[in-house]
Amino acid sequence: MANPDAQPPGAPVLRIRSLCKTYGSGESAVHALRDISLDVRSGEFVVLLGASGSGKSTLLNILGGLDIPTSGEIEFFEHRLTHATDEELTVYRREHVGFVFQFYNLIPSLTVRENVALVTDIADNPMPVDEALALVALTQRRDHFPSQLSGGEQQRVAIARAIVKRPQLLLCDEPTGALDYATGKMVLEVIANINAGLGTTAIVITHNAAIAGMADRVIRLVDGRIASIETPARRLTPAELSW
C-alpha cells in the first residue's frame, strides 16, 4: 500500500475512472452505478447528494473497499483498489478508512471508551482513545454504556471509533439520518471539525440537500450517474444550515 504521508497536500486521495456496478444479469440486471469518473483531493469535504436508489451507498461502499465494481478503476494514492486481493482490501479498510453509518453499531456491553478502544487493537498508529473522545466532546461520558447515551452521543462515539486509527478517509453514510434536527447539526459540526482540524478527507452521503452547503464540492447522483458537480462559493458552518 502506498504511503499517503509521502503525497503532496491536495493530491488526489481517490481517482475513480469509468466506474460501473451492476447487480444481477439479463433483464433483471440493476445498474447501480454508470460510468462514474471523479477525483477526490486530500483534505476535501465532499457531499454525495441524491435520492434513495441513486447509487450513493453503492459508491461509498466501493470507495471504502466493502464492495467491488463490475468495471472501471479506483486508485487510492496510486494503489489500484480494483485489482486488490481480499487481504489487501482488508488492510486498506483497517489502516486507511473510517466508517460512520446511520446506525451506530456500538457493543452494548462495553463502555464508550471500550467501544472506541476496540479499534486501536488493529490500527498501526492509533491516537490515544481519550484524545479521540475529546475530539467528539465525550470525555465526561467515557465510562457510560450505549444505553445511557442519547442518539447523538452514540453517533459521536461511532465517529470517535472511526477516527481513532487516524484514517485518511472518513466515509459517512447518512450520519444524521436517525437524528433530530438539533442533534444532527451537532454531529455535522463534529465531522466538520475532524475534517478541518485533522485534515481528514471526508465524504458524506445524504439525501438532505441542505447539508450540501457545508461541502467543498457537491456531487449529485441520479440513477447511478453523476448529474452535476458543484463548488459552493463559501462553505457554510453546520450552525448556518437549516432544513
Score class of each variant (00 low, 15 high):
Leu81Asp: 05
Val112Asp: 09
Ile74Lys: 01
Val129Ala: 14
Leu66Glu: 03
Ile74Cys: 02
Ile122Gln: 13
Phe101Gly: 07
Thr70Leu: 00
Phe101Trp: 12
Ser52Gln: 09
Asn105Phe: 11
Val129Gly: 13
Leu66Ala: 02
Phe103Lys: 14
Ala117Met: 12
Val91Met: 09
Gly65Ala: 02
Phe103Glu: 12
Arg94Tyr: 07
Val97Leu: 08
Asp124Tyr: 13
Glu78Cys: 05
Thr58Ala: 00
His79Trp: 14
Glu88Gln: 15
Ala51Asn: 12
Thr58Trp: 01
Gly98Pro: 06
Ser109Gln: 08
Leu118Thr: 04
Asp121Lys: 15
Val91Glu: 15
Arg113Gly: 12
Asp130Phe: 08
Val100Trp: 09
Lys56Arg: 04
Thr70Met: 04
Leu81Tyr: 11
Glu95Phe: 03
Ser71Pro: 06
Gly50Ile: 06
Ile122Arg: 12
Arg94Asp: 07
Tyr92Ala: 04
Ile107Val: 14
Thr120Lys: 03
Tyr104Asp: 11
Ala117Phe: 08
Gly55Glu: 01
Leu49Trp: 07
Ser54Ala: 14
Leu106Ile: 08
Gly53His: 00
Ile62Tyr: 10
Ile122Val: 15
Gly55Leu: 06
Gly98Ile: 01
Glu114Lys: 14
Gly98Gln: 07
Gly55Lys: 00
Pro126Glu: 14
Asp124Ile: 12
Ala123Cys: 09
Asn61Pro: 05
Leu110Met: 07
Ile62Phe: 01
Ala84Leu: 08
Pro128Tyr: 13
Val112His: 01
Leu118Arg: 03
Tyr92Asn: 03
Ser109His: 10
Met127Arg: 15
Leu81Ser: 03
Ser54Phe: 05
Ser57Asn: 11
Thr82Arg: 03
Leu118Asp: 06
Gly65Asn: 08
His83Lys: 04
His96Arg: 14
Gly53Tyr: 09
Val100Arg: 11
Lys56Ser: 01
Gly98Leu: 04
Thr90Gln: 10
Val100Tyr: 11
Gly98Met: 10
Pro69Tyr: 01
His96Lys: 09
Leu106Lys: 00
Glu75Lys: 14
Ala51Leu: 12
Val97Tyr: 10
Thr111Met: 11
Gly64Cys: 02
Tyr92Lys: 02
Arg113Met: 14
Val97Ser: 10
Phe77Ile: 00
Thr90Asp: 13
Asp130Pro: 10
